[in-house]
Amino acid sequence: MAEIQKSDEEMPRVINFMASVLERVAETNDLNGRYSAQKISIFDGLTRPTISVQSYLERIFKYANCSPSCFIVAYIYLDRFSQMQPLLPINSFNVHRLLITSVLVSAKFMDDIFYNNGYYGKVGGISTREMNLLEVDFLFGIGFQLNVTPTTFHTYCSYLHTEMLMLEIPMPLKIVNQQCWVNDDESSTHELDVSQIIQKLLD
């Protein structure tokens, strides 16, 4: 498949905010001994990638050609991974691989048309074989809990919107109470108009 590049003008706000959150999470966990990785995983690189999280995420957005909603779902998956794999905190050595993998899994689950693992590997700067292994490991890491209900999606959108308005440093991932995805059948109310929030994030 030929690469389809999106212009910078089409970059939705959620891309910049996700990058900011993940960079801060990685930096915090790098400095905080309590969040030091207690075991090595396939997501850990031997050295820190030279490309920033911001530039890496922008590259994924430009070339992966998945819907903006996929990035919110990928963010939800990263949060689930963080909660279910406490011995593998997100840091500067693994954040890039976790990011490309979460977007890949999200695109496959959310979009009708998506690129294959080989293409994502090229976008992410890794081999097809490694991309395959990362995908499998990530799926097991989140217990194959891929379903994201409208309630969960809206809850995360509300959180992201609030954080963007307040410009506060977020907590290391565990951003939304686990109940928002464990009890997906429960309904929730939101003070803000959800459709407007989502539109602001994806514009």
Rank of each mutant, 00 (worst) to 15 (best):
N16M: 09
V25A: 07
I42Y: 01
A26C: 04
G45R: 13
C66V: 15
R59K: 15
N16K: 08
L57H: 01
N16D: 13
E27C: 03
P12K: 02
V25N: 04
E9Q: 09
V25Q: 02
S7H: 05
S20D: 09
R59G: 05
E3Q: 10
V25M: 06
S67E: 15
A26V: 02
T47A: 12
V53K: 03
Y56M: 06
I51C: 12
S7L: 10
T50Q: 14
Q54V: 04
N32K: 07
I4A: 13
Y35S: 11
I60E: 08
N65D: 15
L46F: 12
K6Q: 10
A64P: 01
R59A: 12
M18R: 01
E27G: 00
R59N: 15
S52D: 07
M11T: 03
R13Q: 09
Y35N: 13
R13T: 03
S36P: 00
N32M: 05
S36W: 14
R24H: 08
S41V: 06
M11W: 01
L31C: 03
S20A: 12
Y56C: 01
Y63R: 14
I42E: 08
M11I: 12
D30C: 08
V25D: 05
N32I: 00
Q38F: 03
M11P: 00
I15G: 05
Q38K: 13
F17P: 00
F17S: 05
E10F: 02
P49G: 04
I4C: 14
Q54L: 13
G45S: 09
D44G: 01
L46P: 00
S67W: 09
I40P: 00
T28G: 02
S55W: 04
I4W: 11
N32E: 10
R13C: 09
N32P: 00
M18N: 09
V25Y: 02
L22W: 11
S7F: 05
K62R: 15
S52R: 05
Q38V: 02
R13S: 07
A64F: 04
S7N: 07
L22Y: 11
L57Q: 03
L57N: 06
I4S: 12
N65P: 00
V21N: 07
I40N: 09
Y63I: 05
K39R: 14
F43D: 01
D44N: 14
S55F: 08
L57C: 10
E3F: 15
E3W: 10
L57E: 01
L31G: 03
F17C: 03
R13I: 04
R34C: 07
R13L: 15
A26G: 02
R24C: 09
Q54R: 13
E3T: 12
S41C: 10
